[in-house]
């Protein structure tokens, strides 16, 4: 929690970061409240006064963003779709960083054989084609939101591990590590009490970028038709639109989910970059 507060304070100091935080808070609010403020059941079909299905209706006062081919309310689907974006993105980002951070710390600190083995393993994962791998896993073990999180985490920790390792390699030679050693601190104590806090800023940047990447990937999986069939996500809305073959007659069906993803992910990127600027002033444009 303290880490989070420190992170938010740092990002808040940069103007673009401030905007990003406000946008993120807004989306988070929608994700939490979505199901309560959604005007309709997202899966319910709307019938008109004449008893016929209201198909592909344009935006109106009743249906802010119109309806789908099956007569479902798009605005409600959008509101329900915010939750999986945060859930899948957030859990994947956290999982990614936890694995990547620990592997990077251990590989960088102990070096030698441990490093060689861990880095070979990282290389193997680096060779895994990102999206194809996730799809194969989903096809294999069923399409559920938890499998998506699991599969994404498996292929995403590798970059974090590499970045953290490089940083640990240089931190290992710093005087404060030698100082800790002379006081008789053990390897693990040095690693987690002295070195880990120093790579934390980098890990936070990694988390932000992992979050952005995970949100886009979750949408891509949904679009390819491998999303959780019981969950409405922005990706699955786009999949329904694409699969309906009539999406080109209904821009209101196609445009909003993409905009939502774009704005949310942009905000995450700007947050990450703002924080990077704070911890590395050289990146600041003159």
């Amino acid at each position: 929690m303290r880490v989070l507060r420190y992170f938010v304070a740092a990002v808040w100091a940069v103007p673009s970061g401030r905007v990003a935080l406000v946008v993120l808070a807004l989306f988070l609010g929608l994700a939490v409240l979505g199901p309560w403020i959604a005007p309709f059941d997202p899966m319910a079909r709307t019938y008109g006064a004449d008893g016929r299905l209201v198909r592909l209706a344009g935006p109106s006062a009743e249906h802010w963003l119109g309806t789908t081919l099956m007569g479902r309310d798009i605005a409600s689907q959008m509101l329900y779709g915010a939750r999986p974006a945060f859930l899948v993105g957030g859990m994947t980002a956290v999982g990614t960083v936890l694995i990547g951070l620990n592997i990077g710390l251990v590989a960088g600190y102990f070096g030698g054989r441990v490093d060689a083995v861990l880095m070979r393993i990282t290389d193997i994962f680096l060779g895994l084609p990102f999206l194809p791998f996730i799809i194969v896993v989903l096809a294999m073990s069923g399409r559920s939101i938890w499998t998506i999180i699991f599969a994404m985490t498996i292929v995403m920790w590798r970059s974090t591990a590499r970045v953290i390792r490089a940083q640990v390699l240089s931190l290992r030679e710093m005087p404060f590590v030698a100082a800790a050693r002379t006081t008789g601190a053990g390897d693990w104590a040095i690693l987690y009490r002295e070195i880990a806090p120093n790579v934390l800023p980098l890990a936070l940047v990694s988390t932000a970028f992992a979050l952005a990447w995970a949100i886009i990937t979750e949408a891509s999986i949904g679009f390819l038709g491998f999303g959780d069939p019981n969950v409405i996500s922005w990706g699955s809305i786009l999949y329904d639109a694409y699969a309906s073959q009539v999406m080109y007659r209904a821009p209101w069906w196609v445009v909003p989910p993409g905009i939502a993803i774009m704005v949310l992910v942009s905000a995450v990127y700007f947050m990450g970059r703002a924080y990077e600027q704070v911890i590395n002033p050289r990146l600041r444009a003159i």
């Binding site: 679009f223 786009l238 639109a241 774009m262 700007f270």
Partner: peptide, 29 residues
């Protein structure tokens, strides 16, 4: 430092944040 540069950074970030399949769908549309 110019205004043009700032908008380009914003545009590039936004584009990068959009799912590519969605860009493809819009382009087809």
């Amino acid at each position: 430092g110019g205004r043009a540069e700032g908008s380009l950074v914003l545009a590039a970030t936004a584009l990068q944040s959009a799912p590519v399949f969605w860009l493809g769908m819009l382009a087809i549309l």
